[in-house]
Nucleic acid binder design. Sequence first.
DNA 1: TTGCGTGCAAAGGTTTTGCATGGCA
DNA 2: TGCCATGCAAAACCTTTGCACGCAA
Lengths: 145, 145
Amino acid sequence: MDSKPKYKTKQREELLEYLKTVPGKHITVNDVYEYFKQHGRTIGQTTIYRQLERMVDEGLVNKYIIDGNSPACFEFIGEHVHSKEEVCFHCKCEKCGRLIHLHCEELVEIQNHLLQRHQFVLNPMRTVFYGICDACSMKKIKITP
Amino acid sequence: MDSKPKYKTKQREELLEYLKTVPGKHITVNDVYEYFKQHGRTIGQTTIYRQLERMVDEGLVNKYIIDGNSPACFEFIGEHVHSKEEVCFHCKCEKCGRLIHLHCEELVEIQNHLLQRHQFVLNPMRTVFYGICDACSMKKIKITP
DNA sequence: TTGCGTGCAAAGGTTTTGCATGGCA
DNA sequence: TGCCATGCAAAACCTTTGCACGCAA
């Protein structure tokens, strides 16, 4: 998937170390930047962008694009989710931003359908279902400010 | 959904007239802008943004956000069908970047499944399936450059 | 006449790029 | 030593906003 040699830099190590403390949590480039800034360590924004993008290619990190105007969200996956059986789907609520993890057998049928009918190999790690979660649906019924 | 009075301006009429010639097709704000420019008629980009956004509210136009960095896509729906089934799904190839449009009835089942089993209201406009398209899958078998 | 619509310019914010420097192997 | 990685500044990019003018009702 990649032919470039990979260096093990201090910035990358520190970034990974931080990411491991927030697995499954959504963070932006700015979140990372501010975190290190407030801990007396400055890492250039450009570096964060490039490293995170590299980790996405490596499958260590998921990248979610919530909205065209808001910054992209990154999520450290961790080592445990690398088996096919443990693959989970994500639902992201457009209202409250809540991320829902689905370990649903039935949703695996989507992969099969896309593959057999449309010759498309779905990547569940990268795919996010956007919509409105149950909590926000009920809120909407009550009050509309 | 909206209480403001609606004016029938020349720009809006011309924009609608153009949109009617490309129903179901994906166009960007810049596409519209360039189209009128090349036809000797200039409509301000701001106006196009505002009118298209208004038409989204009115249900005349769909707005798709494929990728955070690429411009938003707009799609004229037309008067004839306002049913939810007309909304199309998108598959984005991670290799070649190709965008595939799916008007697939079976995929609508995903919406029903998510709603009934997970109380999640799927928004097909924002949801993009990421993966590898058929062309790139075959390329991968042949050569890996 | 009223006030929404228009469009230019400028700002806003996120991401990318150029380039010189620094650091890993 | 040879590259890759870094990081600053600046550019690129899409989109929104401010404001004066125009135009529909």
